[in-house]
Amino acid sequence: MLGSSLLPALGLLQARAGEKGQSVAPVVLPAQVGQWNMEGQEESYGSDTLFDYMDGAAELYLAYNFRSMKVARYSKGEGPRIVLELYQMGSSEDAFGIFSFEREDQEAGVGQGSEMGGGILRFWKGRYFASIYGEADGLEPAIVEVGKALASRIQEVGKPPELMAVLPDASQGLEPASVRFFRNHVCLNQRFFIANKNILQLGPDTGGLLAKLSGPWGKVHLVVVRYPSQERAAAAEASFRSAYMPEAGQQSKVRTEDGRWTGTSRRGDIWIGVFGAKSQEELGRVLEMVLGRLGKA
């Protein structure tokens, strides 16, 4: 059985870091977890070398303000290894974002949010995102122990996006596992295609949530975006209306080609879009439900 017999902490120096712009002391990776020992030295990568380490997904991490990462491999002397990857992102929102983007499995009880599936443990804590996987099947219990050991060394506790507060709760139809945090239209499109151009004027300084809601209105997609200013939000709103619902005029809703309804609203720096409601009335209900929660964000 794996215990938490980690080598003495080599200085758990992590600051209780704040968010963007504040420095954070590096997390010291465990040298040993139970019978699993780190092989050699850990590797480090930055944004300029990330492509050297991963083929394909580096762009995704850069989209979530990737800062740096460490890789360590653990073995019991022989046999398959466990590979630990720890990513420092720009903020806890980004760490949550990269976690949420690919979430599809059951919660594993590690860090501030996690999942385990296909031999891969993914979790986020503070501004860190971790991915830990085994080189063979059957290592899941050990992988979770390594994950817990790592999570215990991350002193920082982060906040999920404040915008989460505007989402209805599960009793109101929210599918919690469907919630994704995104920063740019490429990531949004990969989960819910809106347009090939950036008609919502998203960028590194915006943050948005995508979620599915089920209820009397059918199954709708909710998109909520917070902009740095009211002006930016207003410009994005105008851009969206022009490109997506030009026939709507001053209306904020339109019946789309599938017979369902799409509508938008804006309050200050927050833009809301609801896609796929069964009727005008149900569209209005969903929008009102979200608008009613805006003060909580």
Binding site: N189, F193, I194, A195, N196, K197, I199, S239, S242, A243, Y244, T256, E257, D258, F275
Partner: peptide, 19 residues
């Protein structure tokens, strides 16, 4: 934005959105 392709274009043609 004359070259914008939106979700509605796929709904209109019955195609797979985003594909």
């Amino acid at each position: 934005m004359s070259s914008v392709v939106t979700r509605r274009d796929f709904l209109r043609t019955g195609g797979q959105v985003g594909l």
